[in-house]
């Protein structure tokens, strides 16, 4: 078997449109993860022992369960639970829905930790200085604490995006046709005759996406740093 460059490009072009699916679940999970992660981070930093406990249990569980196990639990478990509760079958027609739920659960756990430590990275004195000079708590948070916490969190956010994109590729196991799912289909249709070209094209796409994410985050970091005068 020989590697043919023209075949490689042919599959690269065939796979690329499915990147949209990958971006959809990664993007949505990131957004939901930020919302829920923020909530759990507030719980973790708050005074209520019960809420702190809930957030701790959540992050402990979802950071230790292997993503593929979680995906199966979501894929089989949620429709079963829904049927038990409503008495109606919800079916499993939209694999992307289950992938988004799974990746959101994972993202939430990571984002809780990222936001908690980013908040902690800004010393409490600056917050106190803000309120003592007459700013409200909310003004102090958004004008003083948040910009500095964001700068601290950006590198981990970049790593998280790359991680989410990779974990989501597990969606093929439940029939999701993203770039990985599509690559598998193409490979089966050609009886593995072009296996190298297909998977190298796929790896190239993941690689470019990861590099682009990193570059984008570096750029954002520089921009925030310049705003903070630390460049």
């Amino acid at each position: 078997m020989r590697f043919k460059l023209s075949t490689f490009f042919e599959y690269l072009v065939k796979l690329l449109p499915y990147l949209k699916v990958t971006f959809t679940y990664a993007g949505l999970s990131l957004v939901f993860g930020i919302v829920f992660g923020f909530l759990f981070a507030v719980f973790k930093l708050g005074k209520s022992r019960i809420l702190r406990g809930i957030a701790n249990v959540y992050t402990a569980i979802f950071r230790s369960v292997p993503p593929v196990v979680l995906l199966f639990l979501v894929y089989y478990g949620i429709p079963m639970a829904a049927e038990a509760i409503t008495g109606k079958s919800m079916g499993r027609k939209e694999p992307i829905l289950f992938v988004i739920i799974t990746v959101t659960l994972l993202a939430t756990a990571s984002l809780t930790e990222i936001m908690r430590s980013a908040y902690k990275s800004v010393d409490k004195g600056q917050y106190e200085a803000g309120v003592s000079i007459g700013l409200t708590e909310i003004q102090t948070f958004f004008r003083i604490v948040f910009p500095q916490a964001l700068l601290y969190a950006l590198p981990s956010l970049g790593n998280l995006v790359i991680y989410l994109i990779k974990e989501g590729s597990l969606g093929f196991t439940i029939g999701l046709v993203d770039i990985f799912g599509k690559a598998n289909t193409l490979n089966q249709n050609t009886y593995s005759n072009h296996i190298l070209e297909i998977y190298i094209a796929l790896a190239t796409i993941y690689w470019v996406v990861a590099i682009a994410t990193e570059k984008l985050l570096k750029y954002a970091e520089q921009k925030v740093k310049r705003e903070l005068g630390r460049a």
């Binding site: 200085a129 803000g130 003592s132 000079i133 004008r143 903070l228």
Partner: peptide, 28 residues
Amino acid sequence: TAFVFQNYCLFNNKTVLQNVTEGLIVAR
């Protein structure tokens, strides 16, 4: 009232001028 802290507690994301105007513009 105003508080001067042992370890200064300046706003690290603000310039010297902004550190001083913050309480005037935003709070007052």
